[in-house]
Design a protein around this nucleic acid. Structure first.
Lengths: 237, 237
DNA sequence: ACAAAAGTGTTGTACGTACACCCATGA
DNA sequence: TCATGGGTGTACGTACAACACTTTTGT
């Protein structure tokens, strides 16, 4: 599969009007080869034209006049990386005058995707990076990723978004691993179990994950509980 | 002083490109005439042209190509209402295709202003409304205000933004009144005092507010503590 | 049998809430 | 002196961190 970077700031035709772009910071969890712990990873797209040709940038594209912002984020993410997120939320609108040679307002989203939803095939010009060790990115994208990571870590504390990174059924150890990767610290298994059990968001199943030592019970999410606390009218805050 | 509404969606020339507007929901506290409690109030601007001529709308205007988003919010707020907020933070980017007859992306900010900073003179076409009892507003502005109120109430719980509504020196009762107005419920004076004293954000002065019963000590804010937890690089989250 | 992860129990501390009570001032 | 808000003390319940301990599997 061949895809060319269509990233907003790449357009060569300079116009004097302000243009609106949409980009997405999409997170997943990667298990490192030899390591015990999982790490947060994001896909980047290599720029194939100026400005910043050759640098890595967030997947994105121009906003179409006929689509909403959320739809534009999902579409441009799909076109550049082939990914369809399980969770998508607006992050921030970046609009400093000097963030790009031409005036570009970027509405940036952040998203989660389950590891099993990532297609095996390699997409050209797309590469996954460890979020903790990014190269120099195009435009202000390093700062944007930092901000998205901050929001992710914040939100994991007061919502159940962590579940956007897991399959339908999972063990408590797997859920805990998600939290540990995002927060960057180990959590007490005993206390973690109680917290999450008392939150009412988990439904125990009759199935167990076997294969190593004592089998662990599989849990599902309680669909009646919102993934994240939206504000009034369903805006993803 | 005469000012004409320059609100974004008011422009009569239809263009096929997407245009970017900036609006602001700015809060203050008003003491109702006979009432014991203060209420949250916001200024609105009456629209003087289509669409939605005659309806009340959020103060705002078009984004200038040469200014950043924050600057645009402050400028358009000043031009339409004459107000200069003591706290300003981006709220959300609204971009549904059908939120206006022409395609308009609105970057919306929310802000706080101290009652003593509001000029006495009446500004034409501007009127203050009780945030809890708004009329029907233009466009999707009712929903936007709801969302801003939700953010305000949320944020008051984990930051010291309440201080954006007070003068330099204030009593604990005045600070508590701010919280009560925003949260819409009474707080225990004793417990409130301890919470805020233990937070380390307040500095007691030697001055007292006299005039009614026992004098109350005046406090200042500890400048070393951030008004609100910004993310990396000073973005107002 | 033993290692290792699953799962339970117990304890201490911190913090929010409710509410009784004393203090200082204006009228 | 009395009413009222300023300010202190205390007791209870919940929530979380730390950590000892039991259970169940694979090898």
């Amino acid at each position: 599969m061949t895809r060319t970077s269509t990233f907003p700031e790449a357009a060569e035709t300079a116009v004097d009007a302000t243009r609106v772009a949409v980009s997405t910071v999409i997170f997943t969890l990667r298990r490192r080869a030899g390591s015990e712990t999982a790490t947060v990873a994001i896909p980047l797209v290599r720029r194939t034209r100026d400005p910043h040709e050759g640098l890595w940038a967030l997947p994105g594209g121009w906003l179409d006049v006929t689509e909403g912002l959320d739809a534009a984020a999902a579409r441009t993410l799909g076109e550049t990386t082939g990914l369809a997120p399980s969770y998508l939320e607006q992050l921030y609108a970046f609009g400093d005058v000097d963030r790009s040679p031409t005036r570009v307002i970027s509405i940036v989203y952040w998203a989660l995707i389950r590891p099993d939803e990532i297609p095996d095939e390699n997409v050209e010009n797309v590469q996954w990076f460890d979020a903790a060790a990014l190269p120099q990115l195009a435009f202000d994208h390093n700062a944007i990723v930092d901000y998205a990571l901050w929001r992710l870590r914040n939100k994991v504390g007061y919502s159940r978004i962590a579940h956007g990174l897991l399959a339908d059924e999972f063990t408590l150890a797997e859920l805990r691993e998600v939290y540990e990767a995002i927060l960057g610290k180990r959590l007490d298994p005993a206390n973690f179990r109680r917290q999450v059990e008392n939150s009412g968001t988990l439904i125990p199943t009759d199935r167990f994950r076997t294969g190593s030592h004592r089998p662990a019970r599989l849990y599902r999410y309680n669909q009646g509980v919102e993934l994240a606390d939206r504000g009034p009218l369903g805006i993803h805050h």
